[in-house]
Simulated assay, not measured.
Amino acid sequence: MIPLASPIRFQRAADQRLWDGPAPKFGEACVRCPVLIVGSGERPRLEEIRENLHARIAEAEREGWLGDVEQLTVSLSATDDRISQIDAKERRKNSPVSVGMPPIGQLVVREAENRDKTD
């Protein structure tokens, strides 16, 4: 499972120039990354990130940080997209798959045509 690092932590640190901690680990990723593949196990973490983003957007609007509101809204949209990807994957996993078998009526007709050719 890939732990999803909160984009807020990195965004706020970059804005305030206070980030002096270690660089993000290889397994951590921003939800806005286009190559991030999420599994169904990450859904609780994504929901937690979404709730945090709503709180951060409210704080940024209250403080008048319009640039932060825009960036946080982009992250919120990406988080919603990731959650919808998980939902779509679950729906596909639980839906029946057509293997292309022809109906019985077509099989009987083909068998009769094959008998006529061999006789």
Results as ranks from 00 to 15, higher is better:
Glu51Gln: 15
Asp20Gly: 12
Val74Met: 13
Asp116Ile: 08
Leu53Asp: 02
Gln16Ile: 04
Phe26Thr: 13
Pro34Lys: 15
Ala88Arg: 06
Ile57Cys: 09
Phe10Trp: 14
Lys93Asn: 05
Gly21Ser: 11
Pro3Trp: 03
Arg92Gly: 04
Asn52Lys: 11
Met101Arg: 01
Leu72Trp: 00
Gln11Pro: 00
Ala13Cys: 14
Asp68Leu: 15
Ser75Glu: 14
Asp81Ile: 07
Glu70His: 10
Cys30Arg: 10
Val38Met: 05
Gln71Pro: 01
Glu61Ala: 09
Leu72Met: 03
Asn52Ile: 02
Ile8Asn: 02
Gly105Met: 01
Glu42Asn: 12
Ser75Trp: 08
Lys89Tyr: 05
Val35Phe: 15
Glu111Asn: 13
Val35Gly: 09
Gly27Ile: 13
Arg92Lys: 10
Pro103Thr: 02
Asp116Arg: 14
Asp20Met: 11
Gly21Ile: 00
Leu107His: 07
Val109Thr: 07
Thr73Ala: 14
Leu18Glu: 11
Gln85Met: 13
Arg50Leu: 13
Arg45Tyr: 01
Ala60Ser: 10
Val31Ser: 04
Cys30Ala: 11
Arg45Pro: 00
Arg115Ile: 15
Gly27Thr: 14
Ile37Arg: 14
Ala5Tyr: 01
Ala55Pro: 01
Leu107Cys: 04
Ile49Tyr: 02
Asp20Arg: 12
Asp116Ser: 09
Ala78Gly: 00
Asn94Lys: 14
Gly67Ile: 05
Arg115Pro: 03
Lys93Ser: 08
Ile49Gln: 05
Ser84Thr: 03
Glu70Met: 07
Thr79Trp: 06
Ala14Trp: 04
Ala5Ser: 11
Asp87Phe: 01
Ala14Ile: 02
Arg32Glu: 14
Ile49His: 05
Pro24Ile: 02
Arg115Phe: 14
Val38Ala: 09
Pro7Ile: 07
Ala5Val: 00
Pro22Val: 04
Leu107Pro: 00
Asp20Glu: 13
Gly105Lys: 03
Pro3Asp: 03
Ala60Asp: 04
Ser75Ala: 15
Glu90Ala: 15
Ala13Lys: 14
Trp65Ser: 12
Glu90Thr: 10
Arg62His: 14
Ala29Thr: 12
Gln16Phe: 08
Pro102Ile: 04
Val97Trp: 05
Val109Ala: 07
Pro96His: 12
Ser77Cys: 06
Glu90Val: 11
Ile8Arg: 00
Gln71Met: 10
Lys93Phe: 06
Arg56Tyr: 04
Pro34Ser: 12
Asp68Val: 07
Thr73Gln: 13
Lys117Tyr: 03
Gln71Val: 06
Arg43Leu: 12
Pro44Val: 07
Pro7His: 06
Asp81Val: 09
Arg91Leu: 07
Ser98Val: 05
Glu111Asp: 15
Ile57Arg: 11
Lys93Met: 04
Trp19Ala: 10
Asp116His: 06
Glu61Leu: 10
Arg32Cys: 13
Gln85Phe: 15
Phe10Asp: 14
Glu48Trp: 09
Arg91Phe: 04
Pro22Arg: 12
Ser6Cys: 10
Arg115Trp: 14
Gly100Cys: 01
Gly41Trp: 13
Arg45Ser: 10
Pro24Tyr: 04
Glu42Thr: 13
Glu63Met: 12
Pro7Asp: 05
Arg82Ala: 09
Arg91Gln: 07
Trp19Ser: 07
Asn94Met: 13
Gly100Val: 01
Gly100Ser: 02
Arg92His: 08
Asp80Thr: 09
Glu42Ile: 08
Leu36Gly: 06
Ile104Leu: 11
Pro102Ser: 07
Thr73Asn: 10
Asn52Ser: 15
